[in-house]
Design a protein around this nucleic acid. Structure first.
Lengths: 152, 152
DNA sequence: ATAATTCCTACTAAACCGGTAGGTATTCAG
DNA sequence: CTGAATACCTACCGGTTTAGTAGGAATTAT
């Protein structure tokens, strides 16, 4: 049930954008420096996020990337699906890309109990990832930082 | 968050063993015929399950595989971990194979909020898979079958 | 003009996936 | 004792994915 590094990197970069201050866009170079993600690889990831309208870009000297919407309107689930495909362990349990079990793969019974199980897993994952936005994560990070700095 | 076919096949085969009647072992050939899983591939899967003490084997003419314990004592979580590794999306959120975030991968804050998120996901998955045994699945399947046959 | 940036495409080495192939050892039936 | 069925074991293999690297074209602020 691993997340690919693409998914990992995308969430790190977006969290960085969500916590960045001011209206300035961050360049791939800056994002790479702050996160440790290889720049040219991150570039491809940002392009994917852009074509999915998760971020906006500006070219030229002071160009870079910024969130295309409010951070509270971008969920981790959306981003993970974008990078790693459906959340469900099995295509037969996917909502976003459902593939019905062909007869030969579920030969024993009509009501496939395994499908029910994978659906439960999918729902459990989606329940976490679709309800967590980058706005929420940014808040949590700021709070953690505040606790750190002021030693509350 | 895909399950590999190995994980898929292993769960199918074990469910087949859990629902099989009588004390007889089932051969790879029989399991393959009943599930549609390629025999030689299934053979390797059964060997892995055997070395993990999930099933027992008997060689020779009437040989085959049977569950090594009561079906209620074999959870899906155990089998999925065996075939596909830890349930956690990220090694830093794994219980069974924890790898601490090196500094360069979580450079921004001390309390990594992403790690907390992946941990929530892991817990959600484990909550489903570690609480579901093949005994439970076999019961569900028998009930579904009963409903089917008697059209309740 | 120049430097910084995004955009785009191609390439690649390594790992993983989903098997296949073929032989050895064991066990039971006749 | 022989033969057939079975588990056991190891090697191999083609395709896909992963995790990048490389290099150049287009754009934009200074």
């Amino acid at each position: 049930m691993k997340l690919s590094t693409r998914g990992d990197y995308a969430t790190r970069a977006l969290l960085e954008l969500a916590t960045a201050e001011g209206p300035l866009a961050l360049s791939v170079h800056q994002l790479s420096a702050r996160t440790g993600i290889p720049a040219k690889y991150l570039e491809q990831i940002m392009m994917r996020l852009r074509s999915a309208r998760v971020v906006r870009s500006h070219r030229g000297v002071h160009g870079g990337y910024e969130l295309a919407r409010d951070a509270s309107a971008i969920t981790v689930g959306e981003v993970v699906r974008l990078m790693d495909g459906p959340l469900a362990p099995s295509p037969c349990a996917s909502q976003s890309a459902h593939v019905p079990c062909p007869a030969y793969r579920c030969p024993t019974e009509v009501g496939c109990v395994l499908r029910g199980l994978w659906t439960d897993v999918r729902d459990a994952i989606a329940d976490v990832l679709d309800k967590t936005s980058f706005g929420e994560l940014a808040d949590r990070q700021r709070n953690a930082h505040r606790r750190e700095v002021y030693a509350i």
